[in-house]
């Protein structure tokens, strides 16, 4: 069997539609991860020990269990309790929560990197809590973890094919469907693999440049 380039051309529009869903899920999921992760990090730092400890173990649980099963959980369980979700929304929630467990750790390390003197200075000025976080701590903490956060953007992009399992019509879903329909798995799957390499390798290199730039800080 030979590689059918003509078919690749015909399949491209459908695959690119799939890629649009892939990108959409990545961007939205990442936004959820950035926000939820930050909240988790702040809670773990500021909340009473019991709450902080619970949050810690929930995050540990999320990190130690497969994203695929978490996606199934969101996709099948939430409608059962009356929350109707589109597959894409369920996917964005699943991805976002899973990666929030990782970004929370990144924020935490960033906060630990803020010198103690900065915390003490805010106390000396008796700044209100929200000013402490927004004006002093977070700007310093986030700046130094930008490359690490960027890495999770790429990682999440590479995890989006899992959404295929909850019927989001993303790239792998389209490829699988086209492949099954015309029995052209070789062409479609190869193109999907190449598309992922084409997007993630340059992104990884870009992150490395970012790292070099922010490493000096």
């Amino acid at each position: 069997m030979t590689f059918d380039w003509g078919f690749v051309g015909e399949a491209m529009p459908d695959l690119l539609t799939g890629l649009r869903y892939t990108v959409q899920a990545t961007v939205l999921g990442y936004a959820v991860a950035l926000v939820v992760g930050l909240l988790v990090a702040i809670v773990r730092r500021g909340a009473p020990p019991l709450v902080a400890g619970t949050v810690h173990w929930v995050m540990e649980f999320i990190r130690c269990t497969p994203l695929l099963v978490q996606l199934f959980f969101v996709f099948y369980v939430l409608p059962g309790v009356g929350i109707e979700l589109s597959p894409l929304t369920a996917g964005v929630i699943g991805l976002g929560l899973h990666y929030a467990a990782y970004t929370a750790e990144v924020y935490r390390s960033g906060m630990e990197g803020v010198p103690r003197g900065q915390w003490e200075a805010t106390r000396a000025l008796s700044l209100p809590a929200h000013r402490v976080w927004l004006a002093v701590i977070l700007p310093q903490a986030i700046r130094r973890v930008i490359p690490a956060l960027g890495n999770y953007l790429i990682a999440m992009f590479k995890d989006t094919p899992l959404l295929f399992a909850i019927t989001v019509p993303e790239l792998l879903f389209e490829a699988n469907q086209l492949g099954g329909q015309y029995f052209k798995y070789l062409e479609t799957m190869t193109v999907v693999g190449l598309l992922f390499v084409v997007v993630s390798v340059p992104s990884a290199i870009a992150i490395r440049l970012l790292e070099r730039r922010y490493a000096a800080v």
Binding site: D159, P161, L162, M189, V192, F196, S200, A204
Partner: peptide
């Protein structure tokens, strides 16, 4: 290359 492709895509391939 092998970090760039997700394990799921690789497995399907």
């Amino acid at each position: 290359v092998f970090r760039g492709v997700a394990a799921l895509v690789l497995m399907f391939w």
